[in-house]
Design a protein around this nucleic acid. Structure first.
Lengths: 347, 347
DNA sequence: CTGAAAGCGCTTACAG
DNA sequence: CTGAAAGCGCTTACAG
């Protein structure tokens, strides 16, 4: 039975008095210190349970104790890619007794630093973050707190970085399209300043060059209107595009809607490969071929590495870990398969 | 220029010494206390900037000052409905100087209480939460912290509750299907213990009864296999179903995949209405008619009410605020429209 | 095995 | 307008 105490919470001193011991002894009990007699431990436990004592983290943290909280800073929680990361990080951390505090920058580079500092102000034990494009965080701003960058590197901070092997995945997807005989393959997507997008562009170029074909310029596309415009442009002229490869999920959705609007038939009029598997990819006709991103694995690895740094107090190795993606081959690329998964070997 | 200080952070005392004043004076400056001379303020500001001082929230909070943080507890961050709530709450709170700490229960009722307590341990100024089905939080556990329930009520805790007007929205959707002449309309979805699902079931029953038709029993559906099974059952027999109305977005996706698998043609074989608009609803054939949930408005209202309680120190009114949804009429219900929006008046 | 004292970085009365 | 003292709830040495 917990005693409600509207005036304020139960403190260590209350517990100590109730148990007839010093506060030190209660503190020792709480931290599992073995130098405590069984009888005393029993009395303390009884007092804690009876009073419903809960430690005051503000006081603990003020004494330099760990907060058992990690911070997670993401560009945008409304994006399924990042919300899945949030979900997986949360799961992995919770299983190890950590709370996760999530904040979003909404792709505003100045938010990065502000949120990092506010997380520090609140004494997180470690930080996981996918930075905004263009943000550079000076090493000293990290304040020596264990940090791991996820999906996007943290320029300037010299920390571990866990990412999908985007370059290889994009190269393999384009190679697959090339095997169908398509020669004019266009790429499109969001802000090319974003590191994973840069990597995917490189992968596209790798595949095109390996086939002795010219790489087409990357086309920026952020909204429905430009998707429609891009479709019209790419399919007109004397050398229309044969295949389209949007480099991120949101852009894929935009183009799928444009195809419907313009009555472009996939893969007859245009072959299509999506980067990132979309919820409805199996409900749509034709079923979408896509790069399947190992989001769960990436989030877990990043979390584990961070907790390791926190608890073993290991130094960041400044290493870059690339997790291999795979390809799901369905029908939009021109195949007649139902969902064959192609594993991509790690580079 | 901030000075890096690997040993520890810059403290108020450091600033006071550098400015040649007492710590009190610095504290006054920080809190915008007017009883401070312009000259002193200038000296203090200079010292703060030069040393790169940042307040230690653990110490502030220990003295009973606000943390400027609100906690957000959600069932599942991988679900687009909740991740959009997280995004909007984050936006609204950040605009008012609050940080948001997000945690997920993963639909485990025992997690609710644990997370609430951990949030309290870390001195959040207020709490926003969508509870797990079946969890009851005793009022005293809330510890007098301002709290607002979002989407799902918090049983036992007597707090404000902001939700979508699910009952009316479901009723209107079913009425629309009835106007098409369908008489056998089935409903399906996740755990019926969840309050919004209960409300939607009631809305369905309202519409059926108003039309003098029997309401069909709710069918639980959690995975792809059962979606397929349900399709087969509902469409066989001598009185096959004419329209299907899944009561949540995830279930809609499951059924769309099942239709594709079983080659069920919408709306010819079966009319379909989705609860919750899905990203690809405009890319899919036929375009989906759906209840459009006012997620942004709900999240903003809930956040604003919470911040009001925190800052004006108003009492929770234990009021239930229902935000009206709207209907997007496209083609899956049997219409030939492109995306007409039907506003539903508030009840 | 147990405890009395000091202190973490701030703010709250209280003086002047 | 400014400051010296006490204390928030814990933990860290240090004694015994």
């Amino acid at each position: 039975m917990s005693v409600s105490r509207p005036m304020g919470r139960v403190t260590l001193a209350d517990v100590a008095k109730a148990a007839g011991v010093a506060t030190m002894t209660v503190s020792r009990y709480l931290h599992g210190n073995p130098n405590i007699s069984a009888a005393t431990a029993r009395k303390v436990k009884a007092a804690i349970d009876r009073l419903g004592y809960r430690p005051n983290y503000a006081a603990r943290v003020l004494m330099g104790q760990p907060s058992k909280v990690i911070g997670l800073i993401l560009p945008n929680l409304a994006n399924p890619f990042f919300s899945l990361i949030a979900h997986c990080v949360q799961q992995a951390a919770h299983a190890r007794g950590y709370l996760v505090w999530i904040a979003a920058t909404n792709d505003d580079p100045s938010s990065d630093l502000e949120l990092i500092e506010r997380m520090h102000d609140h004494h997180v034990d470690g930080l996981l973050l996918a930075s905004s494009p263009g943000s550079t965080i000076p090493l000293e701003k990290m304040g020596g707190i264990p940090t791991v960058a996820i999906d996007r590197p943290l320029r300037g901070a010299g920390v571990d970085f866990v990412t999908v092997d985007d370059r290889t995945a994009a190269r393999e997807a384009v190679s697959h399209l090339l095997q169908h005989g398509y020669k004019r393959i266009a790429i499109t997507g969001i802000d090319a300043q974003i590191r994973p997008i840069q990597e995917r562009i490189l992968g596209y170029q790798d595949a095109m060059h390996a086939a002795g074909l010219p790489a087409l310029p990357y086309i920026r596309c952020d909204d429905a209107a430009s998707a429609i415009q891009i479709c019209k442009t790419l399919r007109s002229g004397k050398r229309p595009i044969e295949a389209l490869f949007p480099l991120n999920g949101d852009t894929s959705v935009l183009f799928l809607e444009a195809f419907e609007e313009l009555r472009i038939s996939i893969p007859r009029d245009l072959a299509f490969f999506s980067y990132g598997d979309i919820p409805l990819s199996r409900a749509i006709r034709p079923r979408l071929s896509a790069v399947q991103q190992p989001i769960e694995a990436m989030a877990e690895q990043a979390t584990l590495r961070l907790l390791e740094q926190i608890e073993q107090k290991t130094k960041p190795s400044r290493v870059r870990i690339k997790i291999p993606a795979s390809l799901v081959i369905r029908e939009s690329c021109g195949c007649k398969r139902k969902g064959e998964i192609k594993t991509i070997p790690s580079m």
